[in-house]
Write a protein that binds this DNA or RNA. Sequence first.
DNA 1: AAATATCTTGACGCTTACGTAAACTATAAT
DNA 2: ATTATAGTTTACGTAAGCGTCAAGATATTT
Lengths: 136, 136
Amino acid sequence: MPKTIDKPMPIGELARELGITTRTIRYYEEIGLLGPIERLEGGARSYQRATVLRLKFILKMKELGVSLKEIQELVQNYDTHQQDFDTITPRLLEILDLHIGKVDRKIADLATLREDIVAYRRRILDILQGKQPVVK
Amino acid sequence: MPKTIDKPMPIGELARELGITTRTIRYYEEIGLLGPIERLEGGARSYQRATVLRLKFILKMKELGVSLKEIQELVQNYDTHQQDFDTITPRLLEILDLHIGKVDRKIADLATLREDIVAYRRRILDILQGKQPVVK
DNA sequence: AAATATCTTGACGCTTACGTAAACTATAAT
DNA sequence: ATTATAGTTTACGTAAGCGTCAAGATATTT
């Protein structure tokens, strides 16, 4: 197995690789999602492999509809339990379950909304065709 | 049939009756949803029956998930065609249909999202149980 | 007249997740 | 030395739909 040398990356390269903007990366750091980032002599940020993985995880969560605020909580666990996968995952599962519930509720709400719209639509049609007196 | 005397209302009363705040009513006026509103000598707004109906219609649309921006368009039609129900409703139906489509798409998206979350959840469980090497 | 209630306009606040300058610094290439 | 490229911080802008003062005018009741 070739052991890839994980040389640190500058912010621009990282952004390109992840398909996001540098602004986003700095923003995530700003709100405490990334923890402290190393700097080069000039003051430029330098990203280690661990941080890159962390960012990928964050993006994955976002993709799944988890808000940055909720991700913060996850990341806190991540920090306090220092990469301990077995300790973190239960909470992660909880959050995912919570999210599944939220999504289910949204779907149900939308289904109801759809029915309401259809019903209202029909009422209008009926009125148009004079089947009903125009009563608001 | 008793002909109800439709005496104009002040903003506070109207708000109470509709279950919204006066701020909301003024806001709707501000963004052009209500058209010109009559004033009393003192400068206070006075709402006629027609405006009240218009407001109720707006609230109904909102309830159905139509944004204020979309409602603006509807209301424009309403103004240009001066209460002509037969002219307005076709466009109203269009907008409602458009909305049904939007809702359907949202539901589909959420369903996909749900599947993704569940899949991710299962992956994590598998990893936890050591069925899979931890490969990101 | 004084207190109370309701009205007015104006304008900032809030939330989410960044976009977009502005003004500089640093590094690398020409 | 100059240009090009990438980095830095600070900070305001955006969308939606109002909430929430602030400060003053008006109206009614006591």
